[in-house]
Simulated assay, not measured.
Amino acid sequence: MSEDIHIERRDGIVHVILNRPAVKNAVTLAMWREMAEIFAGFAGDRAVRGIVLRGAGKDFSVGADISEFEVIRDDRHQSAAYEVAVDACSGAIAVLGKPVVAAISGYCLGGGCHLALACDFRFGDRTATFGIPAARLSIVYGLHSVQRLLALTGVSNAKRILYSADRYPAEQALSMGLLDELHEDAGLAAEGFLQRLAANAPLSIAGAKSMLNGLSMGAGALDPPAAQRLIDEAADSEDFQEGRRAFAEKRSPRFRGA
């Protein structure tokens, strides 16, 4: 693992930390690729019950590291390859069958917003500032990110955000749907929220996440046979039997994700 991404584990909750505070956690191409591998790796780890994605220092992320664009994103072919890496990263977050919360302070711009949109929830503090400056760089924001933005904010707000390239403070981002909750300490709130979710059945959360994400991404995004497999696997699971036993015995269930 590179020094640009730091991992902390706390009682089943993992913190994935963008670790370039000197440049406001700008994301390099190598980091997009590394994060895709990191999140894909969490899928088979039953000890991981939730993930907090945050930035080191005062900012979540100012987005892609534009300083390297002249070398790695100079024409349509390089741009297409770059978007493949970006979409692989956000896709790994979105398809992971575990809850992911973005804990946002300071700037959450462009590619940083792309990362936050892929998470299940976005918790911010009052310093959080959102924006997508693609229109000031003659970049068309990626299709999957536009779909996620649309699902969260509605078409009018999505157009305003993308057309204007403006920045939106935390309170306005909350009203537009970019933020879910405001807290004094977004990281602490995100971890506490995930600890509460960790008491619930992992298979239930994974199934709900898969179906809700598919439905929110538009026609054809949901795979009904895959959704049915998740329903069937939960019905055949030891966790389902444990849930029934715990209910009958009037105790808290002990779910294992199997």
Rank of each mutant, 00 (worst) to 15 (best):
G177S: 06
L143D: 14
A80L: 11
S216F: 05
A40G: 13
H114Y: 10
A219P: 11
G177V: 02
H144Q: 14
Q241W: 11
D185V: 03
G41F: 12
R196H: 11
D232K: 12
V62H: 01
A81C: 10
F60H: 03
S90C: 14
S67F: 08
I13Q: 03
H183K: 02
A128W: 04
P169H: 13
A40P: 00
A102T: 01
K250E: 15
I205D: 00
A219Y: 10
R9K: 13
A248Y: 09
D223S: 09
D232H: 14
R122L: 08
D125H: 01
V23I: 15
I93F: 00
I66L: 15
L162G: 01
L162P: 02
F39N: 01
A235Y: 12
F121P: 02
G12I: 08
N213I: 01
I7D: 06
H15G: 07
A190S: 15
G12H: 03
C119T: 10
D239F: 06
A208M: 15
L109F: 07
R136I: 01
G220Q: 05
A221F: 05
A36R: 04
V140I: 11
A135E: 04
L53A: 09
S204N: 07
V146T: 11
D223K: 07
P202W: 01
V100R: 00
G111D: 02
R251T: 12
D65N: 15
A116Q: 05
F193E: 05
N157V: 12
M31S: 05
A248W: 09
S252F: 06
D87V: 03
R122N: 12
I93P: 00
A186K: 00
N200H: 11
V101G: 03
G111K: 00
Y141V: 01
D239V: 05
P133R: 04
A103F: 10
R256I: 10
R160Y: 08
L215F: 08
I5K: 00
R73G: 09
R256H: 11
H15K: 11
A206G: 06
R254V: 10
M217Y: 06
W32L: 01
I17E: 04
A80Y: 12
L109T: 00
G110L: 02
A47T: 14
K98V: 07
P169R: 12
V86W: 01
G257F: 03
G91N: 13
A201W: 05
G111V: 00
Q78N: 12
S145I: 05
R244K: 14
R251V: 15
F240L: 15
E191F: 06
L215S: 07
G220T: 08
S210T: 06
L117S: 04
A246V: 02
E238S: 13
A221R: 09
Q78G: 15
A85M: 02
G50A: 07
G142N: 09
K24I: 06
T28S: 14
R33F: 02
K98D: 03
D223H: 09
G12N: 06
